[in-house]
Nucleic acid binder design. Structure first.
Length: 428
DNA sequence: CGATATGGTGAAGGTCAATT
DNA sequence: AATTGACCTTCACCATATCG
């Protein structure tokens, strides 16, 4: 197996001094801490690939994360080359014998047998083709035959204001289109859980999970906030909640970089999140409870006002990134224990499904009261979506799924105000 | 299409307190 | 005081959805 290793790299310049080559650090160069480099199983580096990665890493306009993502794709290719005993420069006359064509086939097989997701197959092929483009441009590879056939296609984009423009891109006959799998999928490819399952999950969490996870799940199911946002909620976010004009039982929380205090959101969207009076009260209860105050005491300065802290007083959202590994891990264990205890639907449960479930419930309620078009506005508003298209997916999903709703459930009662309120404002 | 944000996972490592 | 084990966090890595 080929290896992928991060290497520390300082840019140098070579000068000739009395016939000797001297290497001096480039004065404006940056140190690259984790430059990914690929090594073959025998231990020798894949020089061409590593040079390509390095060239991108020194560019200011490319994020090192992107270089890493590319290295991962190229690493997968290197492994395939070794496993299939192919050489990366092997381009014989027969098209089906060429390494790129055979790699494409291997990716398609892996995709069709569900080893990798369709988007991963697409990504891997794209990166490899990019790499070969660079190889050709730098003359590191000068094959006798063309590696692929290129053509130009236009991609239609619609911006949030409804203007259309066309993006012209070059594609090859090797690229793998990302066909969506059959079956309805929503944001992040997740399916919502039923109201019954939601209640079962929350009941189980109340008994078998930490108080923090229980509250996070509850908040996720009833506000639709992402884990990242929940983990970054501040006490002041709760205390400065304002009642919604549409219904005094509903409050709104300000989140995003524009809120005060700021709360993390995906793509830095600022906006207002709906929360029911009772859930808000429960969170505030927890905020001033002994359990959380003990954690607050251990927290450092600007973390003290976080609503959710680990038992060491650390934020659940990992510093310097948007991950929340502590929660991931507890979710993982929670899932296992739930499955052991007979909640079979928990096997494939992801935290993000709480958001998806919220959106779906809200969508079906909004449709039944205000109709599809108003429902799009409600969903977009509640989930802080940038584009209507994402909200529309939920609506389409609901319209295709027979809704067996118990109209008197608590969710409906709680959110009646939102939908009827929107209807009034839109009618006015 | 290309770039990147997001978050899921196994394994290693850390913390704490009961037990030896 | 050292050991042990439950519970938890962190590290390193990976897949994949989404934006322009």
């Amino acid at each position: 197996m080929a290896r992928l290793e991060p290497v520390s790299f300082i840019p140098h310049r070579s000068t000739l001094d009395l016939g000797r080559i001297l290497w001096t650090p480039v004065s404006h160069g940056r140190v690259i801490n984790a430059l990914p480099q690929i090594f073959w199983a025998g231990g020798s580096p894949w020089r061409e690939a590593n040079l390509w990665l390095m060239e991108q890493a020194v560019r200011r306009d490319v994020d090192i994360k992107t270089v890493n993502a590319k290295a991962t794709s190229l690493h997968a290719y290197a492994n395939w080359l070794e496993k299939s005993e192919s050489k990366w420069w092997d381009f014989p006359v027969r098209k089906e014998d060429r390494c790129l064509v055979r790699y494409r086939g291997a990716l398609l097989d892996a995709r069709d047998s569900s080893e990798i997701a369709p988007s991963t197959a697409t990504q891997r092929m794209r990166v490899v083709v990019n790499f070969y483009r660079w190889l050709k441009a730098t003359r590191l590879l000068s094959p006798e035959w063309p590696l692929w056939e290129e053509r130009t296609v236009g991609i239609h984009l619609t911006n949030p204001f409804g203007f259309e423009r066309t993006l012209t891109v070059t594609t090859t006959d090797l690229s793998i289109p990302n066909r969506a799998r059959p079956g309805e999928r929503l944001e992040d490819g997740l399916l919502p859980v039923s109201a019954d399952d939601r209640n079962r999950i929350l009941t189980f969490a109340r008994e078998h999970a930490s108080e923090e996870l229980f509250l996070l799940l509850t908040a996720g199911f009833f506000t639709g906030m992402r884990l990242q946002t929940l983990a970054d909620l501040r006490i002041e976010t709760l205390t400065s909640a304002v009642p919604d004009p549409a219904d005094p039982k509903l409050y709104r929380l300000a989140v995003g970089p524009g809120a005060s205090p700021p709360v993390a959101t995906k793509f830095g969207v600022s906006g207002q999140i709906w929360i029911t009076e009772s859930l808000l009260a429960e969170l505030l209860d927890y905020a001033y409870g002994q359990r959380r105050l003990l954690r607050e005491a251990k927290a450092s300065g600007n973390n003290k006002n976080l609503l959710f802290l680990t038992r060491f007083g650390n934020p659940y959202a990992q510093r310097g990134s948007d991950k929340s590994i502590a929660i991931n891990v507890e979710m993982h264990n929670f899932k296992k224990s739930a499955v052991r205890n007979g909640i079979a639907t928990m096997r494939y449960f992801r935290f993000h499904q709480t958001r998806c479930t919220f959106a779906t419930e809200l969508a079906s309620l909004a449709i039944s009261i205000a109709g599809g078009i108003h429902a799009v506005a409600v969903i977009k508003d509640a989930l802080l979506h940038k584009n209507e298209s994402t909200a529309l997916k939920y609506i389409k999903f609901i319209e295709k799924t027979p809704i067996k709703k118990e109209l008197a459930n608590s969710f409906t009662r709680a959110f009646l105000g939102i939908t009827s309120g929107i209807e009034e404002t839109l009618d006015a």
